[in-house]
Amino acid sequence: MEQQTVESLQEKRLKLGSSPHIKSPFTTEKAMYYVIIALIPCIISSVIFFGFYQLVVIGTCCVFSVATEYVIKKLRKQKITIMDGSAFLTGLLLGLILPPNYPLSHCALGSIFAIGIGKEIFGGLGFNIFNPALVGRAFLQASFPVETTTWVKPKLAVDTVTSATPLAQFKFEKVIADVSHLFFGNVSGSLGETSALAILIGGLFLIIIRVANWEIPLSMIIGMVCFQGILWVIDPTKYANPLFHILSGGFLFGAFFMATDWVTSPITKKGMWLYGIAISLLIVVIRNFGGLPEGVMYAILLMNAATPLINRYTIPKIFGEAK
């Protein structure tokens, strides 16, 4: 008799476990692959403007990123997670923010550093403080300053286009590049960042399928228009117009693909606006008053570091709670 009750209880027992209980079919892997798809226009534009060799540069970054992830997971005796696409995506992003014809040995070193130090040392995907691809890029910029700032003329260049990036040209020679060149990407710069059109196609795709949020890119653009607009109104000869700054350099690429990284950006709506505007403020400060012509990478890395703080101070009020 007693035996039976125990058995019937066991049949009816509740399944205990911590939340979440309902899981979305939209997994991390799927999101990663959508971002990779969204980057295809950028890869195509880099091939159009800088030649097929750039596929080797990007490929090297991808291969070494995935290999590093595999080796580290193996060493730490953890589940091999190279199939979730995150390491591949890091490699792809790193490849797209490197200069054309970048030495392959440096690509490999940067990828190893990005995955090893930027991601795995913190515990892997979801635990990294900084965007791994930007960590790799910052490491390469500090380690090999000459190679990392050597730019190549785009293939379709007309005579007026020099091999300096539009931002460097403006900073040191006060020459503003043609807006149509900037929009289609016929300027020198990092592989994926030159063509605003390609970035917008990929970025809007990500926003429409809701992999990336729209708050961060929009707040970055609004911030850029406001801060750069103020400077431009004060002295148009000294400071370039906001449109030039939005289209040139890595601003759009950073806004759509780097700053919207799930792991390293704030999770609250208010925090996202704060984050985006702070990034654009830092970019305006670095580009106009700093020694370097470009500051998107450092601006995003700095705000990555501030993300936990932003999250803490923008926790939304619990519904119904008195002030």
Binding site: S143, F144, P145
Partner: peptide, 15 residues
């Protein structure tokens, strides 16, 4: 061997 200049910088020391 291409020298890794970051190692001379303070960042290299911390890493």
């Amino acid at each position: 061997f291409a020298p890794i200049l970051v190692m001379i910088l303070p960042a290299g020391a911390f890493i």
